[in-house]
């Protein structure tokens, strides 16, 4: 299988706070990898390092074999990396459809066009993506008024618009009920397989993690304390102590 993402000895500190300490892992096409850990473990920081929002202090990141340290997020995106945020970030003055169109416009390098009219561009493609993530009925509503769970779906559609090879999903199911969570993860799973891409996601719902992830990485205070298939990680004593122990209580 093709290696999509390779992270080696990644370090990041904010002042004295060591948020990510010596993290290494790799992700293959077709894999759904979960990154778990208690609040403040450094998961979002890892995501920010991978998509270029932050610069690592040490270590290297390869996406499809290309080193991306120090690249800007927009250049990382161009390599085929889609991203959703823990706190959703959409364009509130635009409808769902327009949000997805924006991503398609950027993908097709049409953002500087002055003469065409957006209402006629990539509508069908955008609608297909919106349909895929299951919010076709919301397509013409403004993102400024959407429910949180639906915004997460908008972000997914936006991220999928550039046909990414790597999808980074920071808490994709936050704000959803249990059934909706399962639905979204099933959808993600099927997209991973049909599109041959890799997904790295964080999640606080352990059921979701162990039902859908092929591999799990556990972070605690920035350090990677376990990595492997879900059932192995589940048995790891250290993980049980610092993480699952608190989760099950």
């Amino acid at each position: 299988m093709a290696i999509i993402l390779k992270v080696q000895n990644l370090h990041k500190a904010f002042g004295g706070l060591r948020a990510v300490v010596d993290v290494s892992f790799q992700l293959e096409a077709g894999q759904l990898m979960a990154m778990i850990g208690p609040n403040g473990a450094g998961k979002s920081t890892c995501f920010n390092l991978i998509n270029g929002q932050l610069n690592p202090d040490q270590g290297s990141i390869f996406i499809m074999g290309q080193k991306v340290n120090g690249e800007k997020p927009r250049d990382v995106w161009k390599l085929g990396v889609g991203r959703t945020f823990q706190i959703t970030s959409t364009f509130p003055s635009m409808t769902v459809l327009e949000n997805v169109q924006m991503s398609l416009l950027s993908h097709n390098r049409r953002t500087k066009s002055l003469l065409t009219n957006v209402s006629r561009l990539y509508v069908a493609e955008a609608m297909a993506l919106i349909d895929l993530v299951g919010i076709a009925d919301q397509a013409h509503r403004s993102c400024g008024v959407l429910a949180y769970g639906d915004l997460k779906r908008v972000e997914l559609a936006v991220a999928l618009a550039n046909q990414p090879k790597l999808l980074l999903m920071d808490e994709p199911t936050a704000g959803m009920g249990p059934a909706e969570r399962q639905g979204l993860m099933k959808l993600t799973e099927s997209i991973v397989h049909t599109r041959e891409m890799g997904v790295l996601f964080t999640e606080h719902d352990m059921k979701v993690v162990f039902d859908y992830a092929n591999r799990v990485i556990v972070l605690n205070r920035g350090k990677m304390i376990a990595a492997g298939p879900p059932d192995e990680v589940q048995k790891n004593n250290e993980v049980k102590k610092i993480y699952l122990g608190t989760a099950s209580s």
């Binding site: 997020p73 250049d75 945020f85 959409t90 509130p92 635009m94 991503s103 993908h107 936006v158």
Partner: peptide, 11 residues
């Protein structure tokens, strides 16, 4: 609207 989002979709 969102420089974060714009950045992450390659603009």
């Amino acid at each position: 609207d969102s420089s974060l989002r714009v950045d992450s979709i390659g603009i």
